[in-house]
Design a protein around this nucleic acid. Sequence first.
DNA 1: GATATTCAGTACCGATCGGTACTGAAGTGG
DNA 2: CCACTTCAGTACCGATCGGTACTGAATATC
Lengths: 202, 202
Amino acid sequence: METLGKAPIGRPRGFDTDEALERAMRVFWELGYEGAGLTDLTNAMGITRSSMYAAFGNKDDLFRKALERYTEGPASYAARALLEPTARQVAGAMLDGAVRATTRPGCPTGCFGVQASLVAGATARDARDALITWREEAIARLRDRFDRAVDEGDLPADADPTTLARHLMALANGIAVQAAGGTPRDDLQQIADAAMRSWPPL
Amino acid sequence: METLGKAPIGRPRGFDTDEALERAMRVFWELGYEGAGLTDLTNAMGITRSSMYAAFGNKDDLFRKALERYTEGPASYAARALLEPTARQVAGAMLDGAVRATTRPGCPTGCFGVQASLVAGATARDARDALITWREEAIARLRDRFDRAVDEGDLPADADPTTLARHLMALANGIAVQAAGGTPRDDLQQIADAAMRSWPPL
DNA sequence: GATATTCAGTACCGATCGGTACTGAAGTGG
DNA sequence: CCACTTCAGTACCGATCGGTACTGAATATC
């Protein structure tokens, strides 16, 4: 809504919503949807429950906002990778990006989109489904990019863009699982480099 | 203890512990450690809480027994794969096994060892660590097998068994993530087949 | 200065969590 | 048949879950 030239009425927020959301994102990333309680979240965000509800909505709303922030922040390498000039460079950027994003210093290890709700009990079903959609949409975008590479002759005409996309995402997700388990970045980079030595798997 | 020729004293159990453990394994596999409450578990097992505690111990104990059952059941393809005569056949058996085990009809999708506790809040930390150990030990066994393959000349002398093992496990874990998201078996098999077309990634 | 709006804090809610105590049931052995 | 052992069922425990109602605080506007 338009507030140009006018201060908003009412008591101003006493915290930085951007910073609070960053903290919430990291809590979900590290503990998962079910592992993160409201106390974990509000302690990390530095606000009270009622402030959290007023600013972000309920736990599920907050989770989705955190996922969006993750997409635009730590996982933004994926959107950028799609802009690489060749399919091979797209693949390399995806894997190198996965290695870096899953082992950022000062951040949780692994990938929010893989681990924050891979399976779920009844109360976290929506969160899990949101992550499934998030991963499937990433695969679809990769597939579309590889479709274009076939059209442009950058990939052979008989290459299967869906399988190439799924294969690449399997590697990226597998890297994320090992990162979540504590595997060091150098070891993960060896996986990415080995995969690239024989890419594309035709 | 020795009870040959003698009936055990005390009231006999009124349920099949083997069947109950099978049911518990599937609940943890589908819902995860944190997503599975005692009510979910006891309803699926068909017994009361006190029977569950008497027969299996607490939730954490039950989880470990379920993981062991998973290792010897649905995930037993991994131990068998190691017995294949060549490294390439080991790799193929691992990936084919992962595709099958993560999409068994009538069973949850995905892999218990990846998804039942990939990340965790404070109360599930031990369960998550148990799964990290389980996955790392699987990688170590693969690495040892590939070490032997190098020694036997089945893999080139300059091949890196650790990277080959991690790369293969990344693919298997990535397949499990996609299976957990609902990807059909045929699509996953395409990933495995594509990976094998350029295996080993030297 | 009063009113209105929005935010922060606290106490509290009903429900569910993992787990246990106690009582009764079902068996064996003497 | 009684004593002992082990199991099953029920009620209950303290703690924590996600969430809210109410009150006071901090602002802007008139």
